[in-house]
Amino acid sequence: MKPGVKIVLGISLSVLTMSFVVMYDLYIKERIDSEEVVVVKAGQEIKKNERITRSMIAVERRSKQSIISDAIPASEFGTLLTKTAGQTIVGNSMISKKMIDYDLLIPDPDSGEAIRPITDEMIYSQPGSLRRKDRIDIYLVKKKEESGNVNVASSKDGKKNSNLVQDPILTGIRVVYVKDDSNKEVINGTPDKEKDDRLNASGKISALEVILNEEDFQKLMDKVVNEDYLLYITYN
């Protein structure tokens, strides 16, 4: 090989090597060591209970070392739209799944929703394994005709029960809190490998807090207060 060709090849190789180093430092390395996540736009603040809109959030690339636990990836950007913030999130902050009300436990005031109590005096029966985030169906039991145990399963099989209204008055109601008589939340107790964790409750259920809109709340209160019904509660 002629000396001139060797020189040209040597120079070309050097230029390519330097170009690759520059490309690696400026582009490739950044992409290897970082990921795209959803953040709150600079200058924006998402307040607790506020509904998230496209104008509030953006996708940015952040170094893997700085990414917080359960950060929402860019691929899930669309799932955040119309969701509600479970806490205040300041500008330039990454958004984690723990910050978002995915379980719909925050009432929507635009729909007339609010957190409403169901007290022990209103309840005929409810499962002891009921917990926060469950969705319940509510049946009615006539207080004046109350006698013996109510069997919801048999009523669904077509057998008549004079105490129980056959169809639930409300379905799919979101439970925000399950409380005992000292106003503490009832949660799963110490796990037992031989039992369902729900069977190890930290206390006995005394009252519930649920999300109801005004119409459903008034319908329920009318049955309880004016027509002497009690509530038979089930969950799926």
Rank of each mutant, 00 (worst) to 15 (best):
K48N: 09
M99E: 09
R31N: 15
I67L: 00
S63Y: 12
D70G: 10
E30G: 13
R62L: 10
D25A: 15
M99S: 05
I52E: 00
V22E: 00
K64Q: 05
D103R: 12
I89D: 03
E30H: 15
G78K: 10
S111G: 11
K83H: 04
E50M: 01
I89E: 06
A74S: 00
S111Q: 15
I57F: 04
G43S: 00
V22F: 02
D70W: 02
S55P: 11
K97A: 09
A114L: 11
R54Y: 12
G78P: 01
G112Y: 00
T79G: 08
M56Q: 15
D70Y: 08
K83I: 12
K97Y: 06
V59F: 03
A74Q: 05
Q87S: 14
N49E: 13
N49Q: 14
S111R: 15
I100L: 06
K29V: 04
S55L: 08
V38L: 01
K97T: 13
G112M: 04
Q44V: 04
S75E: 12
A71G: 05
D110H: 14
Q87I: 09
K47C: 04
I28L: 13
K41Q: 11
T84P: 03
P109Q: 10
S96C: 05
G86V: 09
A42H: 14
G86D: 00
K83T: 14
N92D: 13
I95F: 02
N49P: 13
I46M: 06
I57E: 05
D101C: 03
T88E: 07
I46A: 04
E50F: 02
T82N: 13
S93Y: 09
E45W: 02
D101V: 02
P109S: 05
I106K: 01
Y24D: 11
Q44F: 05
K97M: 10
V37M: 03
I57W: 10
L104H: 13
V37H: 00
K41V: 05
R54C: 10
S111M: 13
P107G: 10
E45K: 12
K98P: 11
I68A: 03
E35W: 10
A71M: 07
M94G: 15
T82R: 11
R51F: 03
V59D: 00
L104G: 12
G43N: 04
S63R: 14
S69P: 06
S66W: 15
K29E: 09
E76I: 07
E30N: 14
V40N: 09
T82C: 07
S96I: 01
S69A: 14
F77H: 07
S69I: 14
M56D: 14
V40G: 01
S111K: 15
D33N: 15
I52N: 02
F77R: 02
T84L: 01
D25N: 15
K47D: 07
K64N: 01
Y24H: 05
L26N: 15
E35Y: 09
S34M: 08
